[in-house]
């Protein structure tokens, strides 16, 4: 377990001055869910933190996933690397129930990590974190020339695009011819 939320409850105590009857009511313990990435390491995350992810929130509310079911079967995200999922979980925990600040300086500076993080965040539908990450991606090309942008964002030239398109067409043609030959063989 790599969560920072283990065993704690963040349910806010009722204010006695405004709602004395609710002060006597027992505190509702916060529920936790479990997720794992490609490395199968399970992360324990509170329901409050998971509110950031529209995907997981939808799974919980639409599929009626209970905490017990979740414990037995953690949400599998096989397409997300363990360290990236850890980053996402940490971010969700840090921003649980808080208004999101206009800038987030804790995002990874390495472009490879940032790429994987954008993919994961987009998949998990965490809008605020996606906005931060995309701002950082946009800042990579601030004040750069078209040629520099091509280099940084690995954009193929028109000639490369055309060559790739021709190659794809050739491959598709070969595959179609192969299928026709196979079908003719079967008919014989």
């Amino acid at each position: 377990m790599s969560s920072t939320e283990q065993g704690t409850s963040s349910a806010a105590p009722a204010e006695p001055t405004t709602a004395p009857e609710s002060a006597a009511a027992p505190e509702v313990p916060e529920s936790f869910y479990y997720v794992h990435g490609k490395d199968k390491v399970v992360h324990k995350v509170s329901a409050g933190a998971l509110q950031h992810s529209a995907l997981i929130h939808g799974m919980i509310s639409n599929l009626g996933y209970t905490e017990e079911q979740a414990k037995a079967n953690p949400f599998p995200f096989e397409n997300i690397d363990g360290d990236i999922l850890q980053m996402v979980v940490d971010w969700c925990n840090q921003h649980k129930g808080k208004p999101t600040p206009p800038e987030d300086t804790n995002l990874p500076k390495q472009k490879e990590k940032l790429f994987d993080l954008v993919l994961a965040v987009n998949y998990l539908e965490i809008k605020e974190l996606l906005t931060y990450c995309c701002k950082q991606v946009a800042m990579m090309v601030k004040g750069k020339s078209p040629e520099e942008i091509r280099e940084i964002w690995m954009i193929p030239t028109d000639a490369e695009d055309e060559a790739a398109e021709k190659e794809a067409k050739k491959r598709a043609g070969k595959e179609a011819a192969g299928e026709t030959a196979a079908a003719a063989g079967d008919a014989k």
Binding site: L114, F115, V118, V141, K142, E151, W153, M154
Partner: peptide, 26 residues
């Protein structure tokens, strides 16, 4: 891998988000 970022391999939603953050010059 630290020098470059394959923008066009991102999902459509993410690319749109990045482009909407760019200022007109960029």
């Amino acid at each position: 891998p630290q020098a470059r970022f394959p923008l066009l391999k991102l999902d459509y939603v993410a690319i749109r988000e990045v482009l909407s953050t760019l200022d007109p010059h960029d």
